[in-house]
Design a protein around this nucleic acid. Sequence first.
DNA 1: CTGTTTTATGCAACTTGTTGCATAAGGCTG
DNA 2: CAGCCTTATGCAACAAGTTGCATAAAACAG
Lengths: 188, 188
Amino acid sequence: MSLPHAILTALLEKPSSGLELTRRFDRSIGYFWSATHQQIYRELGKLEVAGFIRALPSDQPSRGQKKQFAVLPAGRAELTRWASAEQESKPIRDALLLRLRASAVVGRAGLDEELRRHLALHRRQLAEYQEIEGRDFGAAAGPEDRLRRLVLRAGIGLETFWVDWLAQALTEVEDMDAAEPPQDRPGG
Amino acid sequence: MSLPHAILTALLEKPSSGLELTRRFDRSIGYFWSATHQQIYRELGKLEVAGFIRALPSDQPSRGQKKQFAVLPAGRAELTRWASAEQESKPIRDALLLRLRASAVVGRAGLDEELRRHLALHRRQLAEYQEIEGRDFGAAAGPEDRLRRLVLRAGIGLETFWVDWLAQALTEVEDMDAAEPPQDRPGG
DNA sequence: CTGTTTTATGCAACTTGTTGCATAAGGCTG
DNA sequence: CAGCCTTATGCAACAAGTTGCATAAAACAG
């Protein structure tokens, strides 16, 4: 249950409306904790009821009107509590690796294309991270920026790993396809 | 929606009962697609109704009795179809990176312990993967084993990355803690 | 042969995340 | 100013995953 804490973190970094949060969850925060606007609006409602955030006063009351949210002391306390507690790590689910395992059983048809597609996606993501690093993290900075830079370095490291692994996997799969056509269950 | 396909793959590798599947989802398959016994039994029921698998005949009918499942031709066809189609990649959610970001805002209390805990977990997982590699993948083999080895290499690469990153993150955080105590919002 | 543990299957309720759609304000275009 | 697009918020239904518990047979201990 980390979505509320992702939202609290984002709102502490900068008070925002639901839509602004959604935009930020498509970029920075969303690089490691994604959420749709539906989740965000629902969670904002819960956080407000719980007294963790409040809507900043606005003229118009509701729909079609921006509503800014700011974190209340209770919300900061909750985030502090969460951040100093042990996290249960969520189980891994990686569809691409599952697919490779399935391909070992039912054949490699279309596998090379999928690997190429993923390779392109990860290369693009890596380039984006590297651009952010060059833009936002030039000189040495305080602990806040050092921690954020560590997070970014995790992203860069992960994408670098995937790019390397996918390139190697693609080479191997092409090699297998050359030796033996990738029909379903080729040799038996 | 990949759980049914994970189960079909596992059953094609070896027909199994629900509990045997559960055990395998705690090991090999579960390294990249985890599932609880609840999910597995429920999904087995659906796959049987859909005509993708069938229960092998047994003496006793139901509870407390092992029920072996085998994949039917329709099930193999479904897995083949799934494996040759494009996968929508699931959004990323990594609680540890989120926590680092939160720590940048509410302070680093307990962060070093959490990093050490993760480091130990990833080191253990890496050792397990390397042991499997040494045991199961000695000599060169057919395309099936080459694909499975690629999957294992992904696991090894990922764990290696995490071990390296966590070690570096820990060093940095300890350095920050030495310069400035890790209270909530230390310097402002 | 009785009670406890282990193996094995499964239901029900709940939480989390996704998809599709509805509503409404404001700006733009002819 | 009528119609359309974009921005902004939100409901409802659904799908996926989790948690807690129930049931029952077999194995084991005394």
